[in-house]
Amino acid sequence: MRKPLHELEIAAAATALPPDGERATVDLRRSGPPDRGDTVDLPAFATDPRTDPAVPAPLRRRIDRFAAVAHLAVNRVLADLPDRPPRERIGVFLVNARAGWSYGEPELALLVDQGAEAMHAYQATAWFPAAAQGEVTIDLDLRGCAKTTAGRASGFAEALWLARDALERDAVDLALVGAAESLVNGFVLRDWPAEQALPDSGPAEGAVVFALRRPTDEPADHPATRLHDLRHEPETATPQQVWAPTLSAAADLYAALAAAAPADVDLGGGFRITVHPRRSNSEHGTE
């Protein structure tokens, strides 16, 4: 039975974001944008996240950096959720808006320089946006509805929307929703033409993931943060000069969870949502 949901409860949230000030150096000489020099430093992990010990060893050589950060963030969320629904009732909804060029560009170079025989078989499964969703669901044995959105401005809101839909139609009981992006490759930086300044804010790599469920009658000593009124107000859409708008939107929502008062969060592309923070015990009438 489908039941409309006007609010979602946040059961847990986690990030896999580079620390402030950390930079990754990207070599632009082979396929990067012309007129930007030989290298550029991005706000991204200085060490390839695929080498993080928390990423299973068999995965490392077959995934892109964006799938690695997705894996890290999802695992951190699940670590905070010891009591989980059955695997068939857990869904995964991720945005990735520019695919995985840290894996894809070297493969393209192999194809051009040495021919198809030199390419690796994992190109077919590492580059495309749904790669992170697939690797995460397979590694963690999550069998609910899983989807990948890709809107450049509003993709994170789209993932939230699809998660809300899945909860409404009772397809899942827990929805892991987030953004996973990585722009650490010269070729994808050609998305910014030479006459346009490169973005100067927001992370260029990372993942932010939320665990959402239908509102529960939470115990008064564990009041939950809730998301209200996911909506589209096109007149509020503003261009974002950040590296990865979807990732920045997810990070903004994550930051808003710490606010003491209700906060309205711009999710990009005209989508907005209101965060209602944990209510105090007095609001629950327990004092």
Binding site: A130, T148, T149, G151, S154, R169, F271
Partner: peptide, 23 residues
């Protein structure tokens, strides 16, 4: 004046888009 969604779910993408619109 409407919203938009973009799905990229590999080879089920068309049916997933239909389902999203249906919902």
């Amino acid at each position: 004046h409407g919203w938009s969604m973009t799905l990229s779910t590999g080879c089920t993408a068309g049916l997933d888009a239909l389902g999203t619109g249906y919902d």
